[in-house]
Every structure is written in C-alpha cells, then in structure tokens.
Write a protein that binds this DNA or RNA. Structure first.
Length: 925
RNA sequence: GCGGGCGUGGCGAAACUGGCAGACGCACCAGACUUAGGAUCUGGCGCCGCAAGGCAUGUAGGUUCGACUCCUAUCGCCCGCACCA
C-alpha cells in the first residue's frame, strides 16, 4: 500500500466534518487555550502560499494544546466590510454582499483544503446583521460613555450629567475643549441642545469638526494609520487635509493606559516600539511669552517645549501657518510677505511637504519677550511647525536643535550659545548633559537638572506649566461609504440621538447607486427613506467590526449580548494571537482600546485582549523573467546576455513569466508558448539545451505572476506535505521568498514516514511488541524535542526533529506498535491526515485528534559518557564528561575533555562535585 | 535622521542559559537496484591540502580556560517612524 494522500485527506476531512471533530464547547471545567488568527478580508484574489503561514502555525499550536488536554478555542471568520468590495461594486455593478459571499466561499474552500481545525460553527462575518448588531451596540456604549480622568476609566455619561448638575465641570475638565469651564448654575441654564453639545465634547465616540484626511478618489475620509506617505494605503490615491464634521473615537484619553498595558503583554519589542512611537508621549512644558506687536489682537504666545532648560537660548519663535490667530501677529510692513507665504503653503500638498523638506518661512513683524531677560525674540511663521501638535508654536533654540539651527542659518538669525564648548558653531547639539552658560539663574546647572528648575520657576511666575503631550490623534471613525456598519444614530434638530437597543441592528439598506451623496455624504444620503428618518448617512470604518471580533467567537450565537460574561470569563484573553505586522498601529490599538472600555464598563473581566502576539513573516514572491529581443519574438536565455543585459548589441525586454511554468530557473518552453497567445510563436535561444530565466525577490502579487496557489501544491503533494513544508521554510516570524523546490524533501519524508508503518506489497508492518531501550531512546528524544519546539513556536526545527527521528527508527528497523503509535500522536498537529489514517490502520480506538500526548521520560534519553557543562564555584566554566547510566543519580567518574579547563584545574583538586538535574555539574575548588 | 531587527556553506537554515559550528532539508557528485527513473536505497558534500593538519559564523578589536552567542567600533541588509519641538 502506498501513501495515497489524496484519498486519505479527502476521506478524513469528510469524517471529521461528519463527526464534528472540531466542535468546541464552552466547557467551564476544563483548562482553556484561546488561539486566534487575524481574520482575513475576503478579497477576490483568494489565498496565495503566504496567507496560510500563520494559520498553519496557529493550527499546529491549537492541535498540540488539544492533545495536551486543553479545551482549545480556535475560530475563524471574515472581516467582510470594506472598501475593495465597494470599489468592485462600482466598477462591475455587483452588490458588495454578493461579491463578498462569493469570495468567502472561495476562501473557505481553500482553507478546508489545508485541513485546519477551525470550529466553523463559530464563524463570524462582520457584515452579517446578527454580528454588526453588536458592533452598533458597543458603539452606543462608547457614545454613552466618557473617560473619567479621576479614576482613569470609561464611565457612563449619566454620571457626568449628575456631576455637572452638582458642581459644573470643575472636576471633569473637558477633553474636547480644554478652555470650556462652567458651574452648576451655568449647566442648568444651558438649553438641551447646548447640554448635548457639551456632552459631545466628552463622549468616547463623538461627532465633531476636525481636520481629517480626505481622499477624493475613494470619496471618503481615512484614519491616520490608513494614510501612508501622504497617499491612501489602499490604492495609493492622494490624500488632502480637510475640515469636516466627522465621528471620532476619543482614543487619546486611553493613551496612558495603552502604554501601560504594553508592559503586561507579550508582544515583540518592535511591535511595542511601534505602538509607543505612534502614541508618542512626551513630557514638557507650555510657556506663555508676552507679545510685542503693532496690533493688540494677540497678547500672548503659548509654546510647547520639552526643553524649558534652554529658554535662554531662544533666538526666535515659530508658529504654524494654518493657525487662525496668526494674522493677528502680523505687522503692516510684513503683511504682504506673510500673505504670499501663507498662499505658498496652502498650495503645497501634504505629499510635497513630506517629500521635499524645504526650509521656508516668513517673519511676522512681531516679537515675543523672554520673561527672564527681557530679550525681544522675533516671531516667524514656518511650515516645519505643525498646527496639530502641542500649541502649534515653538520656541526655537538653534544651538540645541538641528531644525532650528538650519532655519536660523537659512534666514541669517544670530545664534546664542548656551552650552559652551558643546556647541561647535556649525551643528546643533541636543545634549542634556552640558552645563549651561549665558543662562541667567540657570547658569552653571546641568541641563538635565535645569529642566525641572526652569519649569518650577515658570509655574511660580504663573506663565508656564508642566504638560504631557501625545502624538496620537483621536481616530476618525466615519466613512462616506456604503459597505460598512450604519451608525445607530438619528439626528434630531442637530442633536445625535442613539437608537434604542431594541431597534438594533439598524440594517444596511439596499442601494442602487454607490455614488457619494451631496456635500461629501455617503451613498446612504441618496436614499429618501433613510434621510426621512434623519439617520446618520456615514458608515463605520473597516476597523469597527475587527475591534471586538475575538469576543464574539466566545459566544457567537448569543442574541441577548455581544458575549455572555460567563463565556468571556472562561475564555478570557487570547492566549496566542498570530498575524502580520501591518496592523501594529491600527487594529491592534483600536481593539485594545475597545477591550479597555468594555472592561471599564463591566462587560468583560480583562482589559488587554491578547496575552501573546506572534507576527508571522511575509512570504515574498520569487519572480522569474524571460528576455525578449526588442521588437522580435526571440527569447534569449539569461546566460547569453552580455554584461549590460543586452543581446548581440540589441536591447532586450525583461518580462515577468508565470513562476508555475518554470522549474527552478529552467523555463518550460512548451508551456510558455501555450501561456499567452502573444507567445504562441515564440522562438528560443537556449544555453546547454535549456532556457534559463532571470529572477528577483518581490512582493507576491498576481500582476508579477509570482503567486503560488496552495490549491495546486495540495493537489500535487497533499495538505500534510504543504503544512509541514510551510513550517520547514524557516522561523514563522521571518520573512522569506517562496521556493517551491524544497517541498520535495518534505514530501519524501512523509513517504518515508508512511513506509515505517506500511510496505507497498505486504501492507501493515507494525508488530505489537515491547520496544527496545534503543528504540525508546529515539522516541523520547523526539518527544522532548517536538514538545519543546512546538511550545516555543520553533516549528521549523520541530519538523527537522521528525525527520531525524524517522531516519533513526528506519535505521533501527523499528516496527514496534508502542513506539509508532506515540509517534503518530506526536506528528498529529503537523500532519493530521496521515496520522489519523495510520492510527486506524494500527487498530487504535477513537481519533488520533483526541489521543493523549505521549509523556517524555528522561531515563530513556540519558546517555552514559555524555558531555555536560561544568561550573566552577557556581559560574559556568567548562565541559566535562561524566559516566552516568539510566536512572542513576550519582556521578561515577569525571573526565575533563577540554584541555583548556584541564590545564586551568591542574593542581586544584575539586573539593566537592554536585550533580544538578542532568544539566550542570558544579565543581567547588 | 531616529527606533527595532538581522549578517553562518551554492541555497533555506540549526546551534535554546557562552561549551564538538553548519543539525535537518534543497541543489550537486558518486554508487546500488532497475528496461527505465522525475521511484527507492547507500555514500560524499564549508574552504585550503594527497595527507597530517590548518583556516572559517560581514569586518576590526575586547572580555573569557572557551565566543555564532556577551561588550565596543565599523560596514552591509531588512522593517517601522519621519519636521512631534
């Protein structure tokens, strides 16, 4: 009997489906493990070999935990709302629901092919009304809550109203409008509309006027993380800043807790770093400078700085051009120049500003007065200062800040040196260690210490205060599109009124046209019945549904709650979350914030969603090229090209060729002629009878013809081979180009594995007899290795471990059932189909999916005369050989194998030798 | 520019707390079986050398009895952020 993987895999997948082998119960008595993949957006392109990498890793880990006795939640679903489906709808007239359904079907078929152990009864789709009912419900919780800064928690707005009635907003400073102050009487005097406007400035989900990223091509606003280098992440369309009324999440209120939470979760340093940078917390001070100007409109200039210690080195001030009070500074003499500059800035796109960092600016004609020495400091306008950060104004210290220095130089502003020899006159030095000079009362102090001293003095004078700033902005939460969750909000006389929970879900109505509505509204604005009900016409962004989906899997069919408290208390955090790094500052921050808010409001019992995150690397494509002599049909093999990439003095075109018709680097010329009609008459110039292609590592994409479809590999080698090969490629976290060639080795291994049990003619070869010590040694070594490697996600070395084990058992001609049965359990997470088939051929009861994981026993593995590390007086120093047999506790003999340590120990006879756990020898001299 | 990560055979990579560098696999070479081999099996495979032996983990130093591993400098690659005051 040969290894017929096609029959085996189909058959067992059918059986597992029929018996509900992957059904997971909320079994509150068993220990749990929650292993989660980032659910995919079901794109029309389907899966390529890069996508399943993380899914296979999580599947292996899930199956491993299951065999170890855990109740494992390992679900899958679809992030089904989003722009591409709508773009597709606009171009092809197919309703997004229809194309999404079709794409999901294809995804599901591809996933099933690989043999994952998902419990599909728990599948979620964010576009399903029974799902987004709860997305809308959670949105309303956020809408109905504010961030109570006194205890750092989300709190119902009703509590806020009570406080306002008692004492105004004295203890609850307004996050949306810091200058808003009112007492109880004033609150009571507000009209209902005014009260609602005030509350809106507090809500965690709020609607407000703000500068947003507007993408004309996509017809919608985008969140900051959806804009990359000034263009949209999807499609690469230009993005401009625009003032619009939008919904936001007040995520900035959670900045400190999002930072603090990072210390309690197991993310990679890089990932934590990215989130930390995105939040961008900085400690500094706001300082008010008196302004001397012709006009009296602006009397004060408030700047933000992290370096108040350098205040005596301030040579000019810079304000952002966009600020509306800036014209109030400008002198008549400078008016024309300023106007010209503001005009120039406005013409420059976000993109241009980023691409070419030109030094530009204009003097306002006004001066700020240094409060300590009375110096008059010119106030400039420049685009290098951002309106959205701090106060939009800075004090410039050219001797300590590179940008300030360059600006000073460009405009010929004299530079004051306050750090003596630390400033070399040609380059700013941002040190904090210098001793201050020319600095009034700070002179002689180390800068690091002077920071506090300066703020203390400013605070005492009432012209400055400590201030923590964040780079992170509130997240834009509305989209002017159709294919997303409708907001459960009605607008009545300009007041946002939440729909009652009983009316959820507010279902997405059918539209005939996906064109935007009037005045930048979404397509929903074109539906008369929708507008008549005064419903919000925007929809929620893609990240709404994905911010809480991990909770829905725990209790997916609950109609009374998004997830029962019993279910979330049982499944708790995601123990292992696997996905790409591309969600570092989007999804991973939003879902952390939603979890914290739900925790604050008492709906769940933990405030960090993911205990451990593993980022799988990207699998790149290895593209292949053919070389066509320009203007001909002649294709020249790579080795025949000259150094300049030409042939016979003629230029050649380098064309992508489908990697699936290339064997390694050798082109299948017949397949190439059949590939596209253009190439039917292709002529080839071969080298050594072969056509050799060029190659390059690029991102895997259809347009580069370098995608490899897992379906094809599963068809050719089987799911078990495919799964093991993806793991064998290298560490899960590492990015690497795909190379189909090596899959043969893993396939050979599985065939060899099969032959360990089965003979082609004679059939089953396993005998039920006790194993020899030698055989047990091999088995237990494998158990230890596979278990350790699986637990630490070193799946590539685990696969190697199987290969070594099978090679050794083959050499020993081991046919013993106890050994071979255990080996099947061991390999089940990696290659479940072949394991199940052999498990039954061996006559074992039940399914190998539920077998008991074999226990590693050290006594079989321990070897005599093994080299162990030795510690001299506690410190690891050398290696010795001891003679030690199975089960024995005492050291019989010590042989120093290392000549270096032998020499070093000469004349120092050991006083005592302590044997520690088979790992370490401690010699005391 | 700032931050994070990584440099090991022809290739993917192992070496987990410093202890026989290159496990395992691909490719390649030789052989066996075979009508055949894109099946299977055996052996070889870092570099120099007939060999004994020597040299090898980007480069240069350091710590150590001992360094792929720790420290310093430097070069190169990848990822993220990028006027955040």
């Amino acid at each position: 009997m040969e290894y017929n993987f096609r029959r085996i895999e189909k058959e067992w997948q059918r059986v597992w489906k029929e018996t509900g082998a992957y059904k997971v119960e909320n079994n509150y008595t068993k220990p749990k493990a929650y292993v989660l993949d980032m659910f995919p957006y079901p794109s029309g392109a389907g899966l390529h070999v890069g996508h399943p990498l993380g899914y296979i890793a999580s599947d292996i880990y899930s199956r491993f935990k299951r065999l170890k006795g855990f109740n494992v939640l390992h679900p899958m679903g679809y992030d089904a709302f989003g722009l591409p489906a709508e773009q597709y709808a606009i171009e092809n007239g197919v309703h997004p629901a229809v194309s999404t359904e079709k794409n999901i079907e294809n995804f599901r078929r591809q996933l099933d092919n690989i043999g994952f152990c998902y419990d599909w009864d728990r599948e979620v789709r964010t576009s399903d009304p029974s799902y987004y009912k709860w997305t809308q419900w959670i949105f309303l919780q956020l809408f109905s809550s504010f961030f109570n800064r006194t205890n750092g928690q989300a709190t119902p707005v009703t509590e806020l109203v009570k406080a306002f009635e008692k004492e105004g907003n004295a203890t609850h400073a307004c996050p949306g409008n810091p200058s808003l102050v009112f007492d109880a009487a004033a609150w009571k005097a507000f009209s209902e509309k005014e009260k609602q406007d005030v509350l809106m400035e507090y809500r965690l989900a709020y609607c407000g006027e703000g500068e947003v990223n507007w993408c004309e091509a996509l017809g919608t606003v985008l969140a900051n993380d959806e804009v990359v280098n000034g263009v949209s992440e999807r499609g690469g369309y230009p993005v401009v800043k625009k003032k619009l009324r939008q919904w936001y999440l007040r995520i900035t209120e959670y900045a400190d807790r999002l930072l603090e939470g990072l210390e309690r979760i197991d993310f990679s340093d890089a990932m934590k770093e990215m989130q930390t940078n995105w939040i961008g917390r900085s400690y500094g001070a706001e300082i008010d400078f008196a302004v001397k100007s012709e006009k009296a409109t602006v009397k004060n200039l408030r700047v933000y700085t992290t370096r108040p210690d350098t205040i005596f080195g301030v040579d000019f001030m810079v304000v952002a051009p966009e600020l509306d009070w800036v014209p109030g500074l400008v002198s008549d003499e400078q008016a024309a120049a300023v106007e010209a500059y503001l005009d120039y800035v406005q013409r420059r796109s976000e993109r241009e500003r980023m691409a070419e960092k030109k030094i530009s600016g204009v003097f306002t004609g006004a001066y700020a007065i240094n409060p300590f020495d009375g110096r008059e400091i010119p106030i400039w306008i420049s685009e290098y200062v951002l309106a959205g950060y701090g106060t939009g104004a800075i004090m410039a210290v050219p001797c300590g800040d590179e940008r300030d220095y360059k600006f000073a130089q460009h405009f010929g502003i004299p530079v004051t040196n306050i750090i003596g020899s630390h400033f070399n006159g040609s380059e700013a030095n941002p040190t904090k260690e210098a001793v201050l000079e020319n600095s009034g009362f700070l002179t002689g102090m180390r800068m690091r210490d002077a920071i506090g001293a300066a703020i203390d003095k400013l605070e005492a004078m009432g012209i400055g205060k400590r201030k923590v700033n964040y780079r992170m902005r509130d997240a834009a939460f509305s989209r002017q599109r159709y294919w997303g969750e409708p907001f459960p909000i009605q607008w009545k006389n300009g007041v946002a009124v939440p729909l009652p929970a009983s009316e959820l879900p507010l279902e997405l109505p059918h539209v005939d046209s996906y064109q935007p509505g009037p005045e930048g509204e979404g397509p929903l604005a074109n539906i008369p019945s929708w507008v008549a009900k005064e419903l919000e016409t925007n929809t929620m962004p893609g990240y709404a549904g994905s911010s809480w989906y991990f909770l829905r899997y725990m209790d997916p069919h609950n109609n009374e709650a998004f997830c029962s408290r019993a279910a979330s208390d049982y499944w708790e955090q995601v123990d292992l979350y696997i996905g790409g790094t591309e969600h570092a500052v989007g999804h991973l921050l939003y879902s952390r914030m939603w979890t914290k808010a739900l925790y604050d409001l008492g709906y769940i019992g933990h405030d960090e969603p993911y205990k451990k995150l593993v980022n799988q690397g990207m699998i790149q494509g290895s593209s292949r090229f053919v070389f066509r002599v320009n203007g001909t049909n002649l294709f020249v093999s790579k080795g025949l090209l000259d150094a300049g990439g030409n042939y016979d003095g003629k230029t050649v075109d380098k064309l992508h060729v489908d990697v699936n018709i290339v064997d390694g680097y050798e082109l299948d010329t017949e397949a190439f002629r059949n590939w596209k009609p253009d190439f039917a008459a292709a002529e080839f110039l071969l080298e050594d009878g072969k056509y050799i292609c060029g190659s390059e590592v690029e991102k895997m994409s259809k347009s580069k013809f370098n995608t490899v479809n897992p379906d094809d590999l599963v068809e050719k080698y089987g799911a078990d081979t495919f799964r093991m090969y993806e793991m064998f490629l290298g560490p899960v976290e590492m990015s690497k180009p795909w190379d189909t060639k090596g899959i043969e080795g893993v396939h050979r291994f599985l065939k060899k594995f099969w032959r360990l049990y089965m003979d082609e003619e004679k059939g089953l070869q396993v005998v039920d007899a006790p194993a020899t010590a030698e055989e047990l040694k091999v088995l237990h070594r494998a158990i230890r290795k596979i278990e350790e490697d699986t637990e630490r996600f070193s799946f590539n070395t685990a696969v190697s471990g199987f290969m070594i084990c099978v090679n050794e058992l083959s050499d020993l001609k081991c046919r013993k059932k106890p050994v071979l049965s255990d080996l099947l359990v061991l390999i089940t997470p990696y290659a479940p189909h072949i394991a199940e088939e052999l498990w039954h051929l061996l006559g074992n009861a039940g399914s190998v999916l539920d077998a008991v994981y074999p226990v590693f026993e050290e006594k079989y593995v321990r070897e005599s005369a093994k080299a162990y590390p030795v510690a001299i007086n506690g410190k690891t120093r050398a290696e010795i050989t001891i003679s030690l047999d199975a089960g024995q506790q005492e050291v019989e003999q010590i042989v120093l194998t290392d000549p270096g340590i032998a020499k070093w120990l000469e004349g120092k006879p050991p006083k005592k030798v302590i044997y520690v756990k088979n790992k370490m020898i401690n010699v005391v001299v």
